[in-house]
Nucleic acid binder design. Structure first.
Length: 562
RNA sequence: CGGGCUGUAGCGCAGCUUGGUAGCGCGUUUGACUGGGGGUCAAAAGGUCGCAGGUUCAAAUCCUGUCAGCCCGACCA
């Protein structure tokens, strides 16, 4: 069924299934031409051609995990670094994060929070203060034990720099900052008049993960962590929900990524929290991505860090705290929500560049006029306000062949490409291509029309992306009441060999759950499915639990997860 | 951390079974021709074969260790 050339031993063994190797997937093979006995050029007859050539291979359908990595690379978002599990975020990816930061930071300030910065290093004893918290993070901590390097002999007997100057107390590179911030809060809070204390930190954190994936799970990542202290439980709970709403608002209205807000089960709670809430999004492989969390910490950390205040009655009380965060994982979510087999597609409201102008200069004698028209259009567009900034325009005058240049921007996912060539000048027109339409689809319009309509166009793309993502989620969400159907829903059709990637299957199952942690653990062992969240919105719907048959009051979101 | 696999030019790979001068495609550079679509032709540059040991007259190839990456688990944002 596949190519004539037998794949080599290595190719067969390679983690990606052999058939992907043999498929005409590799870009470099795509244009291979062969001469038939009559001398006519023809496509390589031994290689089946895909119906549509895609910029990214393999496609999502063929091998989702590999597709994801190829998109990250093709869109020039990030790459692996010499440091295990750590990534280099490249400009296009970092600009996305900067745009997320800018919008979120505004939202945090609008809800009364102020930024501050706390140490990267956390004394071991701090982390030990909250029992559940230590246990939750102990396995993945990077620990600093020395503060100096000295010329000496390394363990392997070679000369080199060896650590010296052992610290009295090891320092943990922050996996999260509850304890170190708690120490400050304890000093800052004396009276009920000091509350609420609403602080946010933009920082990097380190969690020594076993298995890493660019943006989705790396040893070091960038995030924002809000930490607040309140006088009453009600107020702290309100804060927790308020920030969850902020995240949901951001995800849907800026990232065009629909999310479900919900509470975590005990098994999925943040270590040390009383209640954890999250926003859960469905990726294109139908797995759930926890895209943001908001924790009601009760008085657990206040007790551990001694955050105490005198209330109106002169009684000394522990404060009620919250914490909440989103990370560069959002970039991963963005990719897996919107990218297609031609690469990334960035939602206009967060796009580093909204409009790419490509001058088409086939003849030197018309080049100057074309370039001038491009710059003029760019200048006009840059004066237009859009999504809290101005329309970002890049005139790409790099000396590259047209096709290459165009495909680079397709893969990066710039929302609009505008081509201006001599023929357009003659007709007083520009050619506009949308990233959410076919790569060959072009619309001619006057520069004036583009300037007048660019905001509406960008918004149409933004809304279209959200609608598409919502439709995908709805198409793969099922209300399930029968255990057999539930099992079938989460079981792949094909019998996969042990080490091959799993086919795309499942989705969100909305089923009743009686909240028994043992049943949940068993489900995870059995099917790899977990309760993603207990949705906040939605009515009670009593009936038998899908796992145990015991009476349950609510439906929850069951899914496989990242 | 367990199981499987892979590290050879910027990227993708062949060569390894049977040890004997380092190969291919794309990309890059130069020149010409092209010119609204991942061009054409010609020439050129580019590699401590992941790293460290070992076996051998000789190692990309065999052995041991180690590091890194990927897939499947476990764990996790």
């Amino acid at each position: 069924m596949w190519p004539v050339d037998p794949p080599s031993r290595k190719a067969v063994a390679r983690c990606a299934s052999a058939w992907i190797e043999c498929w005409s997937g590799r870009r470099d093979d795509r244009r291979a031409t062969f001469v038939d006995p009559n001398g006519a050029r023809m496509s390589n007859p031994t290689k089946p051609q895909p119906a549509v050539q895609t910029a990214i291979t393999p496609t999502r359908e063929q091998h989702y995990a590999e597709w994801y990595q190829q998109v990250v690379r093709a869109a020039d978002l990030a790459e692996n670094s010499p440091v295990r599990g750590c990534m280099v975020i490249k400009p296009w990816g970092y600009q996305l994060w900067e745009n997320m930061q800018r919008v979120l930071d505004r939202m945090f300030k609008d809800t009364g929070h102020k930024n501050a910065y706390f140490p990267l290093f956390i004394p071991l004893s701090f982390l030990e203060k909250e029992a559940e918290h230590v246990e939750g993070f102990a396995k993945e901590c990077a620990v600093v034990t020395h503060h100096r390097l000295q010329a000496g002999t390394k363990p392997d007997g070679r000369p080199g720099l060896v650590p010296s100057g052992e610290l009295d107390e090891p320092l943990v590179v922050r996996p999260t900052s509850e304890t170190i911030i708690g120490a400050s809060f304890a000093k800052w809070v004396q009276s009920y008049r000091d509350l609420p204390l609403l602080i946010n930190q933009w920082a990097n954190v380190v969690r020594w993960e076993m298995r890493t994936r660019l943006f989705l799970r790396t040893a070091e990542f960038l995030w924002q962590e809000g930490h607040t202290a309140h006088a009453t439980e009600a107020e702290a709970r309100e804060e927790t929900m308020k920030m969850l709403d902020v995240y949901a608002d951001f995800a849907e209205n800026w990232m065009a990524m629909p999310v479900i807000k919900g509470r975590k089960t005990d098994g999925e709670r943040f270590p040390g929290a009383v209640d954890t809430f999250s926003i859960e999004a469905m990726m294109q492989d139908r797995k759930a991505l926890q895209a943001g969390t908001s924790h009601f910490l009760g008085q657990n950390f206040a007790k551990a860090s001694e955050i105490k205040f005198l209330d109106q009655n002169g009684t000394l009380q522990h404060a009620w705290t919250t914490s909440w965060g989103v990370s560069t994982r959002l970039v991963g979510g963005l990719i897996m929500t919107h990218a297609d087999d031609d690469g990334l597609m960035v939602p206009p409201r967060l796009a580093p560049t909204h409009v790419v102008i490509l001058p088409i200069t086939p003849k030197p004698e018309t080049a100057a006029a074309v370039n001038e028209a491009c710059e003029k259009l760019a200048k006009r567009l840059r004066e237009i306000a859009y999504a809290g900034r101005t329309v970002e325009v890049e005139v790409d005058r790099r000396d590259l062949r047209g096709g290459d240049k165009m495909w680079q921007w397709v893969k990066k996912g710039a929302p609009l490409r505008v081509e201006i060539g001599p023929r357009d000048l003659e007709q007083n027109a520009v050619s506009v291509c949308r990233r959410d339409r076919g790569t060959k689809e072009r619309t001619a319009m006057s520069a004036d029309a583009l300037v007048a309509g660019v905001v509406a166009l960008l918004e149409e793309i933004q809304q279209g992306m959200l609608a598409k993502a919502k439709a995908h989620r709805e198409a793969n969400t099922r209300v399930i009441d029968e255990p057999a159907e539930f099992r079938a829903f989460f079981t792949p059709n094909k019998q996969e060999s042990e080490n091959s990637p799993t086919e795309i299957h499942g989705g969100f199952a909305m089923s009743r759950f009686a909240m028994d942690a043992k049943d949940e653990a068993k489900l995870k062992d059995d099917l790899g499915v977990t309760v993603r969240c207990i949705p906040i919105e939605g009515p009670d719907d009593p009936g038998p639990c899908i796992l145990s048959g015991k009476p349950a009051t609510r439906r929850v979101v069951f899914a496989k997860a990242y």
